[in-house]
Amino acid sequence: MRIAFFVALLAASIFYSYIAFADLNFMTRSGRLGPGFFPRILGATAIVMTIWALLDEMRNEDAPHGAAQQWRDVALLMALALGYAVLLRLFGGLVATVIFLAVALSLLNRGKPLKNALISVLVPAFVYLLFDRILNANMPPALIDLPI
């Protein structure tokens, strides 16, 4: 996983540099520094540094590996968060937050259904009041309106 992260960074650095060298000019027509000047330096340095760090990582065999349980918990929370992002787009801020909290708490805080249900309703209500009513800020609108 660790090595894969470094390889992904290296790929991103190469892609960034490719655009910097292929599409962006180093100098402008008037002889000033062009839009490609800074990106070219950044891209080239990023490639060198990432390869250096990657080689270090490959030599370092003692890198810590998390327990399967640790990964399971964090993967669950990430999946829930990404699911929430999709729900926000579909059902809007208020309804998506109620659904997300109900599902997330039922999985993470098992055995306390009443407390979880209360939090799933009260937190979105408070957030709605704060953002929409008090601060007059934008709440995500719904793509699909639920009949409630």
Partner: peptide, 13 residues
Amino acid sequence: PCVVVVCALGTFS
């Protein structure tokens, strides 16, 4: 989960 909610709605706002 409450922090996830505040982060998402805060960013959107």
